[in-house]
């Protein structure tokens, strides 16, 4: 692909591919160097450039939470973030939560509580729950429900999801002690 900017004779509105941008980020512990068009979302970088298809493209507008990943431990909507803006950041996706065969406590809790039906929202739900636990603001079941409201489950598995997050929160808190 050309990295040359083609411009109209008058003005500087790009009419062809603008230069690709180099971006270096750490994804699930491994440093990656990539060249991407400026408009590439973090979500598209993960799915299309790195084949990390666990992170889902639901609405692509920040309304459903299926694309939730962790950036420096905080959960964000990867569909509403440009890949180039994540230069130097540490990204954790659903593929990076387990340690070998040892599942993350949130993953275990989701299985135990059957916290999904079709499973499409689940990677986002799990990453969001890990972020919720890292943030440390959820004290009650109500808090969990409120702080998980950015993740929509159209199958309606909310009862199981809430129970799973509640259990994982307790496990992580006692592991931290």
């Amino acid at each position: 692909m050309s990295s040359k900017v083609l411009t109209k004779p008058l003005g500087d509105v790009p009419v062809a591919l603008p230069p690709l941008q180099r971006v270096t980020l750490t994804i699930n512990g491994a440093e990656k160097q990539l060249e991407v068009a400026p408009w590439t979302s973090l979500l598209d970088l993960l799915r299309e450039y790195l084949d990390l298809t666990g992170t889902k493209k639901g609405c692509d507008h920040g309304q459903c939470g299926a694309c939730t990943v962790l950036v420096d431990g905080k959960r964000i909507n990867s569909c509403l973030s440009l890949a180039v803006m994540q230069e130097g950041k540490e990204i954790t996706t659903i593929e990076g939560l387990a340690k070998g065969d040892q599942l993350h406590p949130v993953q275990e809790a989701f299985i135990e509580h059957d916290a999904f039906q079709c499973g499409y929202c689940t990677p986002g739900q799990i990453c969001s729950a890990v972020g919720l636990i890292n943030e440390g603001h959820a004290k009650t079941t109500e808090d969990i429900q409120e702080l998980m409201s950015g993740n929509i489950c159209r199958c309606g598995a909310y009862v199981g999801i809430t129970a799973a997050v509640e259990q994982a929160l307790k496990v992580c808190q006692s592991n931290a002690q």
């Binding site: 939470g65 939730t68 909507n77 969001s128 409201s149 950015g150």
Partner: peptide, 9 residues
């Protein structure tokens, strides 16, 4: 306002 993810961004 918004969701936890959006408020983080």
């Amino acid at each position: 306002g918004a969701s936890a993810q959006l408020r983080n961004m």
